[in-house]
């Protein structure tokens, strides 16, 4: 006899597809924020499923900090070709050149915070009224209170104390002119769910996620890849380590973990036993106890 219930991955998939379809139904110009990381790759996969045999009816937006891993960019271009979707690239370098933002200086300089300006400008330029992202509530404590449909005012800001209640699966995407929404279809997924889903669906990922040899520098306990964007401090040295990445941000701020996990089975086993959060390797979250909340309020993902 058939069992009339879904497994947790099937239920999470059904929920995410419902949300993605709701976005296309409720908004005029949605888009998918594509970072090249595993969460946004899963989102692209879910979008393809949601509309098949139609093509994905919205563009992918990539905010290019200029500090991306080359592997991420190559993967992005390949995926866009395969899906047959439009790619919009917002360039942080251009925002700097236009004098809209000023680059941070010093050894820990990063372009992470600058992205927000480029992102908001890009959304405005293309009149995007709903930007879907792969953020998950288990990632960080401020994100635990994020809605599926997250309202942003005309300055792109998030007001955590004044969020709309979200009941059942009735999503309210009503807005005034100039306002927009961020939508997070995989809000309820955990890191483990994402990995199990990637495995069950056989989804291709950038090579960064799998164990490889890399020249690195260890700074404040974070393993950073050697690159033109990371300046060595005195007493720091380059070491060749066997590493992989758990998240896929900018080269200067995304820490690797030492790992021998070179396939999905090994990664899942590693995730199951690991004792630090995936954003624990992110230098951008270590800038204070409410670093994420503060960035989100000003319009970050």
């Amino acid at each position: 006899m058939t069992q009339y219930y879904l497994s947790h991955l099937e239920e999470l998939e059904a929920e995410a597809i419902f949300v993605i379809r709701e976005v296309v139904s409720q908004f005029e110009k949605p888009a998918l924020l594509f970072s090249g990381g595993k969460d946004s790759i899963v989102l692209a996969h879910l979008s393809r499923k949601a509309f098949y045999p139609s093509r994905i009816p919205f563009p992918l937006i990539h905010i290019d900090t200029g500090h991306n891993f080359p592997e991420t960019i190559a993967f992005r271009d390949e995926l866009v070709k395969e899906l047959g979707v439009q790619l919009i690239v917002g360039s942080v370098q251009k925002s700097i050149d236009d004098g809209k933002v000023r680059e941070e200086t010093g050894a820990n300089a990063s372009r992470n915070a600058l992205q927000t300006v480029t992102l908001l400008d890009t959304l405005e330029e293309y009149k995007i009224d709903a930007a879907m992202g792969g953020a998950r509530r288990d990632e960080e404590k401020a994100r635990a209170k994020e809605r599926f449909f997250s309202h942003r005012d005309e300055f792109g800001q998030w007001d955590p104390k004044n969020q709309r209640p979200e009941l059942w699966n009735l999503f309210n995407g009503k807005k005034h002119m100039g306002e927009h929404f961020r939508v997070f279809p995989i809000s309820n997924w955990t890191e483990m769910d994402v990995w199990q889903y990637i495995q069950s669906q056989d989804i291709a990922l950038p090579s960064l996620y799998f164990s490889h040899q890399r020249d690195c520098v260890v700074r404040d306990g974070v393993i950073l890849a050697k690159s033109d964007f990371v300046q060595l401090k005195p007493n720091e040295e380059i070491k060749n380590l066997t590493v992989r990445y758990r998240t896929c941000g900018d080269m200067p701020i995304t820490g690797a973990v030492e790992s021998e996990a070179d396939d999905l089975d090994k990664i899942i086993a590693e995730v199951a036993t690991t004792r630090t959060t995936e954003r624990g390797t992110r230098a951008d979250d270590k800038r204070g106890e409410t670093a994420m909340e503060d960035r989100k309020k000003s319009g970050y993902f």
Binding site: R137, K145, K161, Q163, E293
Partner: peptide, 18 residues
């Protein structure tokens, strides 16, 4: 999770845990 909650020691909003 939110700043104001940590300051006041109360839960204001719905928070989701996994």
């Amino acid at each position: 999770g939110l700043k104001s909650e940590r300051e006041q020691g109360i839960t204001i909003d719905v928070a989701y845990r996994y």
